[in-house]
Structures are given as C-alpha cells and as structure tokens.
Design a protein around this nucleic acid. Structure first.
Length: 281
DNA sequence: AGTGTCGCCTGAATGC
DNA sequence: TGCATTCAGGCGACAC
C-alpha cells in the first residue's frame, strides 16, 4: 500500500509521539505477519528508550538507546494508530501488535492483509540485513541523480515503468508514483528502459523528486488533520494526475475525451499502469 | 545477472 | 440477498 511519502508521513507522526519515550510493553496478537515476529521482541524492547525514528526505503526504523532497531514495513495494508495516555481503545480486528510506553502512549499496528513485516536488528548490522543489502539509492538522497538513473536504465530491457518499481534501481517508488513521475516527465511507461536518453533521465529524475516531495507535503498536512481526529496514520488522499483515473482527461490536456478516450490503463508486470497517450511518448 | 511469473492474505467492489 | 470473481499502493522465491 504505502510508498515512500506515506511511509515518511507515518514515520514523522510516530516520531512526534514516541521520540524519547521508554518502552513498557510490546504485545503480539498472532505469531507472524508475512514473516514470524522476531523472537523475544518484548524482552529486547522493554525498558529501552526510543532515541530516533528514521526511514530507509519503505521501512520505518525505530532506534532504541542500545542501538537496536525495531524495523517496520507496512506492506500493502499496514496502518499505525497512535493513542494518547488514558485514551480509551478497544482492540480492532487485524490489530496485530501494540507497543506501549511508560507514559501510557500506545502504538497500534493494524494490517488486514498481513503483507507487512517486523524485523529487529542492531544498527551496525542494518546494511547487511537481507532487506537492505541489495537496496538502491534513496531518491531524495545525495546518491541519486539523473546520471545515476541513466546509467542504471542503460542496462535494463524491461519497460521503464517496471524498472522504476525495482528497489535495486531506486527505493521508495511504488506503483502510484511510478505512473505519476512518468506522466510528469512525459515518458511513455512502455518504453524500454535502455531507450531512455540522458536528457530524459534528467527530466525523469526531477519528476520523481517533484512527485515524491509534493506527496510528502500533502501527507504533512494530512498528518496535522489526523492528529486532531483519531491519531490514525495510514494512507492519505492525494490528487493524482493519472493514477486510478482511466478514461478521464489528464490535467494538462485540453483534448476531447470522447475522441481520445482519455487516460489509458494498461497492465505491466501484472500491475496497473496509467498514462496519457497524448502527452507521453 | 536480468527477467518474468507466482503467491502471500483479506476486504471492497463488481457482476450474475 | 447471496455467491463468485476481480482487483488492490509490496516484496521475495523461484525458474529460465
């Protein structure tokens, strides 16, 4: 479900409430999500102070004062609910993990499809962890650029849209923002990755940065709204240009939809892709 | 090594 | 109303 901007938003919401808190308990309500929960999670975490919340790719990292890290991936349907001290709460269906702190704050992890993952490892071992070892660069970090993208795409024969979803190439971009970035860069998603020119790579790089940053900004405002509501940090509504808008007019076209059929939906690598045939070549 | 397919799991939306 | 089918934003295992 969530891509980089949603994960960033959830992480920021968790940081605002959990930073500096001391873990009182970690309660599990089933043995596993997609993979088994780490063994003795409660014993490892109880009494430890939370010193930082970070994000790497689509993973949330909760760093403890002994430098062990509670690692959470939201999968497709993962949601985080934050409850203030003394707040009434009845456990809901698909609530699988509840972390509570000494001051009475609780973090509820709910995941209907259980595609999420929880890992636990020392900060020094993070880079070697199987989930992180083969990861590509952060799109918003210093190790990603038009040139880096260009060099990576040169070696790929898959459609550019499929290549963007590969976390070895660049992390954090999922099915929605791949379509959105290609639309913004005016590149047709069916183009072979190795046909993308340096110039197009530069444009696509800028488009990726722009759509991710815009979504993070939208998530930030959603976060403030949610804080006042029920503390639920999950997906947020964002205005997409093409995603899930098959048959509609794209925002930058003035063409007649009855003639052009509007935004087109196709399937690539068994995932849905949306694009505007008029603007993306 | 790069590429394509499958499956994990539940719920919402759709079709009959 | 009930039942079957399809689809969903991620990721890793697997075969070629």
């Amino acid at each position: 479900m969530p891509e980089l901007p949603e994960v960033e938003t959830v992480k920021n919401g968790m940081a605002a409430v959990l930073n500096g808190e001391t873990v009182a308990a970690v309660d599990l309500y089933r043995p596993d999500l997609r993979v088994p929960f780490p063994e003795n999670l409660h014993d490892f975490m109880k009494g430890r102070r939370i010193t930082a919340l970070k994000r790497r790719a689509k993973y949330i990292l909760m760093v403890l004062d002994d430098r062990n890290v509670f690692i959470l991936h939201l999968g497709m349907s993962g949601r985080v609910l934050l409850l203030g001290a003394g707040q009434e709460y009845e456990r809901q269906k698909h609530d699988h993990l509840i972390l509570s702190t000494d001051s009475g704050v609780r973090m509820v992890y709910n995941d209907a499809r259980r595609f999420g993952m929880v890992y636990f490892c020392h900060e020094d071992a993070l880079d070697a962890h199987p989930a992180f070892a083969t990861m590509g660069p952060e799109p918003l970090g210093n190790h990603f650029s038009g040139e880096v993208l260009y060099q990576a795409l040169k070696k790929r024969k898959t459609p550019i849209k499929v290549a963007l979803l590969d976390q070895k190439l660049v992390v954090g971009v999922g099915n929605i923002y791949a379509s959105e970035a290609l639309y913004k860069a005016r590149i047709r998603p069916t183009r072979r990755a190795d046909s993308i020119t340096k110039r197009e790579s530069d444009t696509l790089y800028s488009a990726i940065i722009a759509v991710l940053n815009a979504a993070i900004a939208a998530g930030g405002s959603t976060l403030r709204d949610h804080r006042q509501a029920d503390g639920s940090l999950g997906y947020f509504q964002h205005n997409f240009a093409v995603y899930d808008r098959g048959g509609q007019a794209c925002p930058d076209c003035d063409c007649d939809v009855t003639m052009t059929s509007g935004i087109k939906k196709i399937t690539q690598g068994s995932r849905s892709t949306y694009y505007c045939p008029g603007r993306q070549v």
